[in-house]
Each structure stands twice: as C-alpha cells, then as structure tokens.
Write a protein that binds this DNA or RNA. Structure first.
Lengths: 223, 223
DNA sequence: TAGATTGTTAATCGATTAACAATC
DNA sequence: TAGATTGTTAATCGATTAACAATC
C-alpha cells in the first residue's frame, strides 16, 4: 500500500534509456542484458536493473530484456503513449525555435499555439502554428486542451504568467525564463531549463580543468 | 596537497547562488546571513555554508556574507571575470536563437561566429554575427580564439564535428544535439542540454501527479 | 562584552554499487 | 539440465543536514 516515491535521479535517467533502446531497435537488436547495455551507456549494470525495477520487472532471468518491449514500457512511463498539447508563451527567437523543432512532435508533444504581446508577431505563424495575442490566452485555454505551457518570455513577466496559467488550470510548466518560479500549487509541476546556468557550469569546468593542467603540482598555500 | 575535487552537485548550484546574489545586489542589500539566504532560496543554511566553504571562507562570523563580495567571488569561480569566445555550429532556428540571446554576452560569453552547410544561410548574419561555411571552421579556429563550441546541428553530424573540434584544440563543448558524445579526450569538457529529455521528465511528473490525485487510495494489487 | 553567525565536524539520509539467491 | 541473467537484499559510498565550537 506504500506509495514508494521514485526519485528524480531515476526519472532523469529514463529518457536516456529510452534513447539508447530506440537506437538498439533501429539496429535490429532484439534483446539485451543489463550488462551489455551498461557498457554501451557507461553506467553500471546494477544501476540499470535497480532503475528499471522501480517500475516493475521488465526483464527475464537468463534472457535479459526484450528491446522492443522495454522501449515501449519506458515510453509509457514517460507518458509518450499519449499526445500532449503544448503552448508557448513568448514567440521570440527561442519560442519560434522550439515551435520549429519537429522532434518534439514525434515524441507526442504537439505545439498548438504561440502567444506574444508584440503586434508585429501576432497574426503570423510558425510552421503553421499561429501566434496569438497574449490577451487571448485565457479564452484559448478555456476552449482548448492545454497540457503543458512553455515559458520563453522575459523573466520579469514569467512569475505573473505562471500564476495566471495555474489559475486557468494548466499544471505543467516548462520554464526557460531565468527565474525560479514559486510553485504556489502542489499540483503544478515545473521543469526549469536554465541555459545560462548550464553555460556557467560548462565555464566552471573549463576553467578548473585548465588550472589543473597548467599548474598541477602547485602547492596549496595555507587555507 | 590533496586536490579535493568539488562535486558537480555543488557546481550546479553555484549559478543559482550567483543569480540570487545579483538580485540582492539590485535590491541594495549589503549583507546576508546563510539563514536569510536559505529562506529566500528554499535550501538549508547548512548547504549554503557547506557549498561556499568548498571554495574558501567568504563569510565572517557574527556578520554573515557581504553580498557584493560574495557575488564577485562566485562570478570568478564560474569564470565570469573573463570573456569567453563562443562559436555555434548549426545556424538553424536554435543556433540563431542562441546568437540572439543578449544575456549570454552580459555574462561574458560572446558569440563570434555561426557555421552551417546551408548555402542559403552562409553569408548572412545574426545580430551582426556572421554565418560562415562549415568548411571554413578549421581555418577560423586556427586564426581566432575559440573557448567554447556550441553544437546545434542534427545528431547525425554531432559526433564527427565534436571530434574535429577537439582535434582543432577546442576543449569545451555545449551540446544541444540529442546524442551523448564520447569524450575521446580527458581534457575536453562537455555540457549536454537535452531539451527532449527535459520535456519527457516534465511529462513523467505530470502523468504521475495526475495518477496520484485521481486514484489516490486505490489499493495496489500484487506486483 | 554579548550576540550572532560562520566554518567545520559529526550524524543522517539517500543513492549507487556489489553480491547472490531466485528463476527462466 | 546447466548457464545466464534478472530481481532484490545488503554494503558502500557520497551528499545533505544537524550541531556546535570558534570567532567576529
């Protein structure tokens, strides 16, 4: 009866498994052992088995895992067996780039509309997807199913629009604005993509690396 | 003499501290205790102190941390005290969106050129940044300093271009292509941004959430 | 000085890895 | 059946939190 919560560390790895299994499927591989998969993916076989067993026993002793079956199961776990309607708030360069990215559609994430305040953009369309006035957002959400809202507007407006979305009943937010949104609502899920943070992390690792190489044996002075 | 390696878990949090300290600076706050910062950021004060102490003692007993000083120190740690020249390989929608994002420049990441194979794009420019032929890449890298290469081309070409870049001496790769690049070279640092994975993680959390709400008390049958 | 708050050590918690009995 | 490989328990490792002595 215990609802064993699955950790985000595990969830984060699932899309990667999904990707590798898709590749195996394309290669025509029928079955794979946790050991073979582990050497491909550079993770331990133990971790693969533990991760998968969070969701059920997908393998078979002495045989391994059936690639097609496991691929589909992970797809279901990630919700890829249904379509998700996605809107994008902020039809600037990034918003339009996301709307142009066909891959999302293949995974079942269909962008149905973009919203902006810029009069020059309103009325245009991207790959057939209309750019609507932000003022039309409430009406749109009431008359269309919206599963996920993507935020690509400036950070100053992100918080208020996020709140508006939650009030309108949109409970999944993919946030590209460079702020941490307060999740007012326990039912709302937020996934942040902070590109600047990612770039800074890369920068740190670069700098550090260079230092290590350059002055490897330099003695540390005091503290 | 021990080179205590700082964990990526810590590094990942540093840009967030930097952001909050920047906000505090804008608000005119002069000093802050780990406790006050912890309630703002929704992390434990203990973690803040532990994280910062990986890099040195930036605070003062009985006083807390000087906001401006700490902000600058973290900036240095993240390598934001110098300029990083960045090139973007793949001048499609995403590549152009990144080139248009002025924020990176404010942080010291200057995009100096885009590269593409598409004849229609070559010769154009984005915000004054030229789009060059991919064939010119080796010549460009030899005659210009390139600190970071951003990959926004299709996944099929990502691996070979990454290898080419490493051979040319570019040792930091910001990878948006949906593949895991084999780091051939111990000196090369790769930071992956897998947007599709992020979207799938959001999708999982949404689905899961709905389930919990919908049938909260449903008894679990066997396994 | 007394009070506040850090830096740091020790305790706890969670995630990863190893080991092996179960079983296909 | 014998061999292979899972599912799962136990051991280890690392990261987070708590506690407190040092000190501004």
């Amino acid at each position: 009866m215990e609802e064993k919560e699955i950790s985000q560390a595990v969830i984060r790895r699932m899309p990667r498994y999904y990707r590798y299994l898709g590749d195996l499927l394309d290669e025509g591989v029928e079955r794979i052992s946790s050991n073979d998969l582990s050497s491909r993916m550079n993770v331990t076989a133990s971790q693969i088995r533990q991760d998968l067993n969070n969701f059920g026993g997908f393998g078979q002793q002495g045989y391994g895992y059936n690639v097609k079956f496991l691929y589909e199961e992970i797809g279901k776990i990630l919700g890829l067996n249904t379509t998700h309607n996605v809107i994008v708030i902020g039809a600037g360069h990034l918003g339009q780039a996301l709307a142009n990215y066909v891959k999302f559609e293949k995974l079942g994430f269909v962008i149905t509309a973009l919203f902006d305040v810029d009069e020059k953009l309103i009325g245009q369309s991207v790959r057939g997807i209309p750019i609507l006035a932000l003022a039309e957002l409430p009406g749109y959400v009431k008359s269309h199913r919206v599963d996920i809202a993507t935020l690509t507007m400036p950070k100053s407006e992100a918080a208020s629009i996020a709140n508006e979305l939650v009030d309108l009943g949109v409970h999944a937010i993919w946030n590209f604005a460079h702020v941490d949104l307060e999740l007012v609502d326990r039912d709302t899920v937020i996934e942040n993509v902070h590109l600047a943070d990612s770039l800074m992390q890369l920068s740190y690792n670069t700098v550090k690396h260079t230092k290590e190489k350059g002055a490897a044996e330099e003695p540390q002075s005091g503290r």
